[in-house]
């Protein structure tokens, strides 16, 4: 589903990604862990082209994201063309980023109605279903700032799912939440994984990575240090850097 080969990215002089190679299969849940500044979030944002890459190839479902390969050059696509690809990839942010001027229902309907040009009846029907699924059917008419962080994040997940994405990206979805609200969000994500959604999750929740993840990838300093089965990586890491990171967080 996702294929990364030699993805490099710099912000000015700072090299954030130094050649990432990664494969995510359909239905796989991949958890990206690592210290802050290791490039996990940047890599995630490259996948749906919120950041452009400097070199390397990144494809989702067999198609390059944001670029067209011609000869040995990658040509950056126009905004319109990138949008079509992005619509197939759902993304959930650390800070929720719900649209504060829209009700919960409008937030969830905004993608299908505005991007897919669906009729509002169809979109509303799906929004109802999704909000029920994340346990917020009674909050449809509320505005985001009337909800707790955990509720906002579940709305954000419903909003991303409303586009019926092939792939879901989670950028530290529980880092901004009060500890007692983390569980509800993780439950929703676990449900998604059980339904066979392909997911890439940048997370500090090692419990979630171990339990739900099919693969755990440890990144540090812009490279993939170690990856594999969660139980192996988390309990018996092969690299010194992985070991020292895990000893601090576990």
């Amino acid at each position: 589903m996702v294929e990364a080969r030699g993805v490099c990215k710099s912000f000015g002089r700072l090299e954030v990604l130094k050649g990432i190679d990664l494969t995510v299969n359909r239905g796989e849940v991949l958890c990206l862990i690592g210290p802050s500044g290791s490039g996990k979030s940047t890599f995630l944002r490259c996948i749906n082209h919120l950041e452009n890459v400097d070199s390397g190839e990144l494809s989702v479902d067999g198609e390059l994201v944001g670029y067209r390969l011609s000869g040995d050059k990658l040509y950056e696509l126009r905004d319109k063309e990138v949008c079509g690809k992005r619509a197939e990839i759902g993304m959930v942010f650390q800070r929720f980023n719900l649209f504060p001027h829209m009700s919960v229902l409008d937030n969830v309907m905004s993608g299908p109605v505005r991007v897919r040009r669906e009729s509002s009846a169809v979109a509303r029907e799906r929004a109802h279903r999704l909000l029920e699924r994340v346990g917020l059917a009674d909050k449809e008419t509320n505005y985001p700032n009337q909800l707790s962080g955990g509720q906002q994040q579940r709305v954000a997940i419903a909003r991303a799912l409303a586009m019926e994405p092939k792939l879901m990206l989670f950028d530290e979805p529980t880092s901004a939440l009060d500890p007692e609200l983390v569980g509800d969000v993780l439950d929703v994500m676990r449900g998604l994984a059980d339904d066979g959604m392909t997911m890439i999750v940048v997370t500090h929740e090692m419990g979630f990575a171990r339990e739900v993840g099919d693969t755990v990838v440890f990144m540090d300093g812009g490279v993939v240090v170690e990856s594999g089965d969660p139980k192996t990586v988390l309990t018996d890491p092969q690299h010194q850097r992985t070991r020292s990171f895990l000893s601090k967080v576990l």
Partner: peptide
């Protein structure tokens, strides 16, 4: 983050400005 959220849903730059950024 509002722009990023709108773009991640597949909204174009113009839609993002008109539907998300300007109303706020």
């Amino acid at each position: 983050g509002q722009t990023e959220a709108a773009q991640s849903l597949g909204m174009s730059k113009r839609q993002t400005l008109r539907l998300i950024v300007l109303p706020q």
